[in-house]
Protein backbone atom coordinates (compact mmCIF):
# COMPACT_ATOMS: atom_id res chain seq x y z
CA UNK A 1 0.00 0.00 0.00
CA UNK A 2 1.78 3.04 -1.16
CA UNK A 3 -0.73 5.86 -1.11
CA UNK A 4 0.67 8.66 0.93
CA UNK A 5 -2.44 10.72 1.44
CA UNK A 6 -3.18 10.16 5.12
CA UNK A 7 0.04 10.86 6.94
CA UNK A 8 -0.65 13.45 9.57
CA UNK A 9 2.01 14.76 11.88
CA UNK A 10 3.59 12.31 14.22
CA UNK A 11 2.95 14.74 17.05
CA UNK A 12 -0.71 14.68 16.29
CA UNK A 13 -1.42 11.71 18.52
CA UNK A 14 0.66 12.86 21.44
CA UNK A 15 -1.16 16.17 21.47
CA UNK A 16 -4.30 14.13 22.16
CA UNK A 17 -7.31 16.36 21.74
CA UNK A 18 -9.34 13.70 23.56
CA UNK A 19 -6.99 13.86 26.52
CA UNK A 20 -8.02 17.31 27.69
CA UNK A 21 -11.68 16.45 27.36
CA UNK A 22 -11.10 13.42 29.55
CA UNK A 23 -9.43 15.46 32.24
CA UNK A 24 -12.38 17.84 32.13
CA UNK A 25 -14.82 14.95 32.50
CA UNK A 26 -12.92 13.58 35.49
CA UNK A 27 -12.79 16.94 37.23
CA UNK A 28 -16.49 17.45 36.65
CA UNK A 29 -17.36 13.95 37.91
CA UNK A 30 -15.28 14.23 41.07
CA UNK A 31 -16.56 17.74 41.79
CA UNK A 32 -20.08 16.48 41.36
CA UNK A 33 -19.44 13.57 43.71
CA UNK A 34 -18.16 15.99 46.35
CA UNK A 35 -21.07 18.39 45.90
CA UNK A 36 -23.68 15.64 45.97
CA UNK A 37 -22.11 14.14 49.09
CA UNK A 38 -22.09 17.42 50.99
CA UNK A 39 -25.58 18.21 49.77
CA UNK A 40 -27.08 14.92 50.88
CA UNK A 41 -25.60 15.24 54.36
CA UNK A 42 -27.60 18.42 54.74
CA UNK A 43 -30.83 17.23 53.18
CA UNK A 44 -33.62 15.42 54.97
CA UNK A 45 -36.29 15.86 57.57
CA UNK A 46 -33.81 17.70 59.79
CA UNK A 47 -32.24 20.21 57.37
CA UNK A 48 -28.63 21.12 58.00
CA UNK A 49 -26.88 23.92 56.14
CA UNK A 50 -23.65 23.15 54.23
CA UNK A 51 -21.75 25.26 56.75
CA UNK A 52 -23.16 23.24 59.63
CA UNK A 53 -22.37 20.01 57.79
CA UNK A 54 -18.73 21.02 57.59
CA UNK A 55 -18.82 22.04 61.24
CA UNK A 56 -20.21 18.68 62.23
CA UNK A 57 -17.68 16.83 60.11
CA UNK A 58 -14.66 18.83 61.24
CA UNK A 59 -15.67 20.61 64.43
CA UNK A 60 -14.40 19.47 67.79
CA UNK A 61 -15.91 21.89 70.30
CA UNK A 62 -18.82 20.40 72.17
CA UNK A 63 -21.96 22.42 72.41
CA UNK A 64 -25.45 20.90 72.78
CA UNK A 65 -26.50 22.20 69.36
CA UNK A 66 -23.46 20.72 67.73
CA UNK A 67 -23.95 17.33 69.33
CA UNK A 68 -27.41 17.05 67.72
CA UNK A 69 -25.84 18.04 64.42
CA UNK A 70 -23.15 15.44 64.83
CA UNK A 71 -25.71 12.82 65.72
CA UNK A 72 -27.71 13.50 62.57
CA UNK A 73 -24.82 14.01 60.19
CA UNK A 74 -22.21 11.55 61.38
CA UNK A 75 -24.20 8.76 63.02
CA UNK A 76 -27.16 8.66 60.64
CA UNK A 77 -26.44 10.29 57.32
CA UNK A 78 -22.72 9.71 56.82
CA UNK A 79 -22.79 5.88 57.01
CA UNK A 80 -25.76 5.91 54.68
CA UNK A 81 -23.93 8.19 52.26
CA UNK A 82 -20.84 5.99 52.31
CA UNK A 83 -22.91 2.85 51.83
CA UNK A 84 -24.74 4.42 48.89
CA UNK A 85 -21.47 5.48 47.29
CA UNK A 86 -19.86 2.06 47.77
CA UNK A 87 -22.88 0.08 46.61
CA UNK A 88 -23.39 2.33 43.59
CA UNK A 89 -19.73 2.10 42.61
CA UNK A 90 -19.61 -1.67 43.13
CA UNK A 91 -22.78 -2.35 41.15
CA UNK A 92 -21.63 -0.15 38.27
CA UNK A 93 -18.18 -1.69 38.04
CA UNK A 94 -19.61 -5.19 38.37
CA UNK A 95 -22.12 -4.37 35.64
CA UNK A 96 -19.44 -3.00 33.29
CA UNK A 97 -17.31 -6.09 33.94
CA UNK A 98 -20.20 -8.44 33.23
CA UNK A 99 -21.02 -6.57 30.03
CA UNK A 100 -17.44 -6.96 28.84
CA UNK A 101 -17.00 -10.58 29.81
CA UNK A 102 -20.24 -11.52 28.07
CA UNK A 103 -19.48 -9.12 25.20
CA UNK A 104 -22.98 -7.79 25.49
CA UNK A 105 -23.84 -4.23 26.50
CA UNK A 106 -27.31 -5.26 27.66
CA UNK A 107 -26.10 -7.55 30.42
CA UNK A 108 -26.48 -6.63 34.08
CA UNK A 109 -25.02 -8.19 37.24
CA UNK A 110 -28.11 -10.38 37.56
CA UNK A 111 -27.14 -12.45 34.53
CA UNK A 112 -25.66 -15.41 36.36
CA UNK A 113 -28.52 -15.57 38.82
CA UNK A 114 -26.66 -13.69 41.58
CA UNK A 115 -29.55 -11.39 42.43
CA UNK A 116 -32.27 -14.04 42.54
CA UNK A 117 -29.95 -16.30 44.53
CA UNK A 118 -29.34 -13.53 47.07
CA UNK A 119 -33.05 -12.79 47.22
CA UNK A 120 -33.79 -16.45 47.88
CA UNK A 121 -31.14 -16.63 50.60
CA UNK A 122 -32.46 -13.54 52.35
CA UNK A 123 -36.09 -14.64 52.09
CA UNK A 124 -35.23 -18.06 53.50
CA UNK A 125 -33.46 -16.47 56.46
CA UNK A 126 -36.44 -14.18 57.09
CA UNK A 127 -38.85 -17.12 57.06
CA UNK A 128 -36.61 -18.98 59.49
CA UNK A 129 -36.85 -15.88 61.69
CA UNK A 130 -33.11 -15.41 61.71
CA UNK A 131 -31.24 -12.44 63.13
CA UNK A 132 -30.74 -9.59 60.61
CA UNK A 133 -27.06 -10.49 60.48
CA UNK A 134 -27.97 -13.95 59.29
CA UNK A 135 -30.25 -12.45 56.67
CA UNK A 136 -27.26 -10.57 55.29
CA UNK A 137 -25.08 -13.67 55.41
CA UNK A 138 -27.76 -15.78 53.75
CA UNK A 139 -28.20 -13.21 50.98
CA UNK A 140 -24.47 -13.27 50.29
CA UNK A 141 -24.26 -17.05 50.37
CA UNK A 142 -27.37 -17.38 48.18
CA UNK A 143 -25.90 -15.10 45.55
CA UNK A 144 -22.65 -17.00 45.39
CA UNK A 145 -24.48 -20.34 45.31
CA UNK A 146 -26.64 -19.20 42.41
CA UNK A 147 -23.62 -18.00 40.46
CA UNK A 148 -21.82 -21.26 41.20
CA UNK A 149 -24.83 -23.22 39.96
CA UNK A 150 -24.86 -21.09 36.78
CA UNK A 151 -21.15 -21.67 36.23
CA UNK A 152 -21.55 -25.36 37.00
CA UNK A 153 -24.28 -25.76 34.41
CA UNK A 154 -22.14 -23.83 31.91
CA UNK A 155 -19.23 -26.15 32.66
CA UNK A 156 -21.44 -29.20 32.15
CA UNK A 157 -22.59 -27.79 28.81
CA UNK A 158 -19.14 -26.85 27.58
CA UNK A 159 -16.43 -25.11 29.50
CA UNK A 160 -15.73 -21.42 29.35
CA UNK A 161 -17.84 -20.62 26.30
CA UNK A 162 -19.78 -17.34 26.61
CA UNK A 163 -23.03 -18.76 25.28
CA UNK A 164 -22.83 -21.65 27.75
CA UNK A 165 -22.35 -19.14 30.57
CA UNK A 166 -25.41 -17.17 29.48
CA UNK A 167 -27.51 -20.33 29.33
CA UNK A 168 -26.18 -21.53 32.67
CA UNK A 169 -27.04 -18.15 34.21
CA UNK A 170 -30.50 -18.25 32.70
CA UNK A 171 -31.21 -21.66 34.20
CA UNK A 172 -29.77 -20.73 37.58
CA UNK A 173 -31.77 -17.49 37.61
CA UNK A 174 -34.98 -19.35 36.82
CA UNK A 175 -34.23 -21.97 39.46
CA UNK A 176 -33.63 -19.48 42.26
CA UNK A 177 -36.55 -17.27 41.21
CA UNK A 178 -38.86 -20.23 41.58
CA UNK A 179 -37.31 -21.15 44.92
CA UNK A 180 -37.89 -17.56 46.04
CA UNK A 181 -41.53 -17.84 45.01
CA UNK A 182 -41.80 -21.03 46.99
CA UNK A 183 -40.40 -19.37 50.11
CA UNK A 184 -42.78 -16.44 49.67
CA UNK A 185 -45.67 -18.86 49.32
CA UNK A 186 -44.93 -20.63 52.60
CA UNK A 187 -44.08 -17.41 54.44
CA UNK A 188 -46.43 -16.12 57.09
CA UNK A 189 -48.50 -13.48 55.24
CA UNK A 190 -48.96 -11.35 58.35
CA UNK A 191 -45.37 -10.26 58.97
CA UNK A 192 -42.85 -12.46 57.14
CA UNK A 193 -44.16 -11.88 53.64
CA UNK A 194 -44.18 -8.07 53.98
CA UNK A 195 -40.68 -8.25 55.46
CA UNK A 196 -39.48 -10.25 52.46
CA UNK A 197 -41.14 -7.94 49.96
CA UNK A 198 -39.77 -4.85 51.66
CA UNK A 199 -36.30 -6.35 51.90
CA UNK A 200 -36.33 -7.25 48.22
CA UNK A 201 -37.26 -3.72 47.22
CA UNK A 202 -33.88 -2.59 48.44
CA UNK A 203 -33.09 0.07 51.01
CA UNK A 204 -30.22 1.71 52.82
CA UNK A 205 -32.43 2.90 55.68
CA UNK A 206 -31.02 0.46 58.23
CA UNK A 207 -27.35 0.91 57.35
CA UNK A 208 -25.13 2.04 60.23
CA UNK A 209 -21.45 2.11 61.00
CA UNK A 210 -21.43 -1.52 62.13
CA UNK A 211 -22.59 -2.61 58.66
CA UNK A 212 -19.89 -0.52 57.06
CA UNK A 213 -17.32 -2.16 59.31
CA UNK A 214 -18.24 -5.47 57.75
CA UNK A 215 -18.78 -4.49 54.13
CA UNK A 216 -16.77 -1.41 53.30
CA UNK A 217 -13.38 -3.05 52.95
CA UNK A 218 -14.37 -6.05 50.80
CA UNK A 219 -16.62 -3.91 48.62
CA UNK A 220 -13.96 -1.28 48.06
CA UNK A 221 -11.29 -3.92 47.52
CA UNK A 222 -13.28 -5.88 44.95
CA UNK A 223 -14.30 -2.74 43.09
CA UNK A 224 -10.73 -1.43 43.17
CA UNK A 225 -9.29 -4.71 41.89
CA UNK A 226 -11.65 -4.74 38.92
CA UNK A 227 -10.82 -1.10 38.18
CA UNK A 228 -7.11 -1.96 38.25
CA UNK A 229 -7.64 -4.74 35.70
CA UNK A 230 -8.70 -2.39 32.94
CA UNK A 231 -6.40 -3.71 30.22
CA UNK A 232 -7.31 -7.24 31.11
CA UNK A 233 -10.96 -6.43 30.46
CA UNK A 234 -10.03 -4.79 27.16
CA UNK A 235 -8.47 -8.11 26.16
CA UNK A 236 -11.54 -10.05 27.29
CA UNK A 237 -13.77 -7.94 25.05
CA UNK A 238 -12.11 -9.65 22.06
CA UNK A 239 -13.30 -12.96 20.66
CA UNK A 240 -11.72 -15.95 22.40
CA UNK A 241 -9.55 -16.81 19.39
CA UNK A 242 -8.25 -13.26 19.06
CA UNK A 243 -7.53 -12.93 22.76
CA UNK A 244 -5.75 -16.30 22.88
CA UNK A 245 -3.67 -15.43 19.84
CA UNK A 246 -2.57 -12.32 21.74
CA UNK A 247 -1.31 -14.58 24.53
CA UNK A 248 -4.20 -13.93 26.93
CA UNK A 249 -5.32 -16.87 29.11
CA UNK A 250 -8.98 -16.21 28.34
CA UNK A 251 -10.81 -18.85 30.33
CA UNK A 252 -8.97 -18.30 33.58
CA UNK A 253 -9.19 -14.51 33.39
CA UNK A 254 -12.87 -14.59 32.53
CA UNK A 255 -13.62 -16.79 35.52
CA UNK A 256 -11.58 -14.52 37.78
CA UNK A 257 -13.46 -11.42 36.61
CA UNK A 258 -16.82 -13.16 36.95
CA UNK A 259 -15.89 -14.32 40.44
CA UNK A 260 -14.91 -10.82 41.59
CA UNK A 261 -17.91 -9.12 40.00
CA UNK A 262 -20.24 -11.74 41.46
CA UNK A 263 -18.70 -11.38 44.89
CA UNK A 264 -19.24 -7.63 45.07
CA UNK A 265 -22.73 -7.89 43.55
CA UNK A 266 -23.73 -10.38 46.23
CA UNK A 267 -22.22 -8.10 48.87
CA UNK A 268 -24.30 -5.15 47.67
CA UNK A 269 -27.45 -7.26 48.01
CA UNK A 270 -26.45 -8.11 51.57
CA UNK A 271 -26.08 -4.43 52.40
CA UNK A 272 -28.93 -2.90 50.49
CA UNK A 273 -31.22 -5.54 49.00
CA UNK A 274 -31.85 -5.58 45.30
CA UNK A 275 -30.98 -2.30 43.62
CA UNK A 276 -31.87 -2.67 39.97
CA UNK A 277 -30.71 -0.84 36.86
CA UNK A 278 -27.58 0.82 38.22
CA UNK A 279 -25.31 -1.95 36.97
CA UNK A 280 -26.91 -1.86 33.54
CA UNK A 281 -27.27 1.87 33.07
CA UNK A 282 -24.21 3.50 34.60
CA UNK A 283 -21.61 1.75 32.37
CA UNK A 284 -23.47 3.13 29.37
CA UNK A 285 -23.30 6.65 30.74
CA UNK A 286 -19.58 6.28 31.37
CA UNK A 287 -19.03 4.78 27.92
CA UNK A 288 -20.74 7.74 26.29
CA UNK A 289 -18.30 10.03 28.10
CA UNK A 290 -14.93 8.28 27.79
CA UNK A 291 -15.43 5.46 25.27
CA UNK A 292 -14.89 1.76 25.72
CA UNK A 293 -11.31 1.59 27.05
CA UNK A 294 -11.66 0.03 30.47
CA UNK A 295 -8.85 1.84 32.21
CA UNK A 296 -11.00 4.97 32.04
CA UNK A 297 -14.38 3.30 31.85
CA UNK A 298 -14.28 1.32 35.10
CA UNK A 299 -13.14 4.07 37.47
CA UNK A 300 -15.52 6.56 35.88
CA UNK A 301 -18.35 4.02 36.16
CA UNK A 302 -17.53 3.75 39.86
CA UNK A 303 -17.72 7.53 40.37
CA UNK A 304 -20.91 7.94 38.35
CA UNK A 305 -22.47 4.94 40.07
CA UNK A 306 -21.69 6.49 43.44
CA UNK A 307 -23.22 9.82 42.39
CA UNK A 308 -26.35 8.19 40.96
CA UNK A 309 -27.01 6.01 43.98
CA UNK A 310 -26.39 8.84 46.44
CA UNK A 311 -28.91 10.94 44.52
CA UNK A 312 -31.39 8.07 44.36
CA UNK A 313 -31.05 7.37 48.06
CA UNK A 314 -31.48 11.05 48.88
CA UNK A 315 -34.69 10.98 46.86
CA UNK A 316 -35.78 7.82 48.62
CA UNK A 317 -35.48 9.32 52.07
CA UNK A 318 -36.61 12.87 51.45
CA UNK A 319 -39.37 12.80 48.84
CA UNK A 320 -42.07 11.91 51.34
CA UNK A 321 -42.42 11.74 55.09
CA UNK A 322 -42.05 7.98 54.96
CA UNK A 323 -39.20 6.23 53.26
CA UNK A 324 -39.66 5.15 49.63
CA UNK A 325 -37.70 1.92 48.99
CA UNK A 326 -34.48 2.71 47.14
CA UNK A 327 -35.00 -0.10 44.64
CA UNK A 328 -38.21 1.54 43.45
CA UNK A 329 -36.43 4.85 42.88
CA UNK A 330 -33.58 3.30 40.90
CA UNK A 331 -36.02 1.26 38.82
CA UNK A 332 -38.14 4.27 38.04
CA UNK A 333 -35.27 6.54 37.07
CA UNK A 334 -33.27 3.68 35.61
CA UNK A 335 -35.95 2.85 33.10
CA UNK A 336 -36.28 6.50 32.06
CA UNK A 337 -32.52 6.98 31.99
CA UNK A 338 -31.98 3.91 29.88
CA UNK A 339 -34.45 5.19 27.31
CA UNK A 340 -32.43 8.41 27.09
CA UNK A 341 -29.12 6.56 26.82
CA UNK A 342 -30.44 4.34 24.05
CA UNK A 343 -31.63 7.40 22.17
CA UNK A 344 -28.19 8.92 22.48
CA UNK A 345 -26.58 5.68 21.26
CA UNK A 346 -28.91 5.63 18.27
CA UNK A 347 -27.95 9.18 17.39
CA UNK A 348 -24.27 8.33 17.65
CA UNK A 349 -24.71 5.32 15.42
CA UNK A 350 -26.48 7.23 12.65
Amino acid sequence: MSRSTDRPDFDDLSARPGHQRRIGIWIAALAMLAAVSLGTLGLGRYPVSPHEVLLALLGRQDSPALSVLRMVVIEVRLPRLLAAALVGAALSVAGASYQTVFRNPLVSPGLLGVLSGSAFGAALAIVLAAHPLWVQAAAFAGGLTAAAVGLGIAGALRSGNVLALVLGGLISDALFSSLLSLVKYVADPQNQLPAIVYWLLGSLAQVGWDDLDRFAVPLALGTGLLCAGGRLLDALSLSDDEARSLGVPVTALRLAVIALATLISALTVSVAGIIGWIGLLVPHMARLLVGAGHRQLLPLSAVIGAIVLILADTCARSVSAGEVPLGIVTQLFGALGFALVLRRLRQDAS
Binding site: L13, Q99, T100, R103, N104, P105, D234, S237, L238, S239, D241, E242, R244, S245, L246, G247, V248, P249, R287, G291, A292, G293, D348
Partner: peptide
Protein backbone atom coordinates in the same frame (compact mmCIF):
# COMPACT_ATOMS: atom_id res chain seq x y z
CA UNK B 1 1.35 -17.90 25.46
CA UNK B 2 2.91 -14.40 25.33
CA UNK B 3 6.13 -15.66 23.73
CA UNK B 4 4.09 -17.43 21.09
CA UNK B 5 2.09 -14.25 20.47
CA UNK B 6 5.33 -12.35 19.92
CA UNK B 7 6.24 -14.76 17.11
CA UNK B 8 2.86 -15.37 15.50
CA UNK B 9 -0.08 -13.02 14.90
CA UNK B 10 -3.61 -13.88 13.86
CA UNK B 11 -5.73 -11.70 11.59
CA UNK B 12 -9.32 -12.89 11.85
CA UNK B 13 -11.77 -12.54 9.01
CA UNK B 14 -14.05 -10.45 11.15
CA UNK B 15 -13.78 -8.89 14.53
CA UNK B 16 -17.09 -8.40 16.30
CA UNK B 17 -16.89 -5.17 18.25
CA UNK B 18 -19.49 -5.02 20.99
CA UNK B 19 -18.13 -1.79 22.41
CA UNK B 20 -17.09 1.51 20.83
CA UNK B 21 -13.30 1.15 20.96
CA UNK B 22 -11.34 3.62 18.87
CA UNK B 23 -9.16 2.35 16.04
CA UNK B 24 -6.09 3.27 18.04
CA UNK B 25 -7.28 1.23 21.01
Amino acid sequence: APARARRMAYVPQTHVASFPYTVEQ
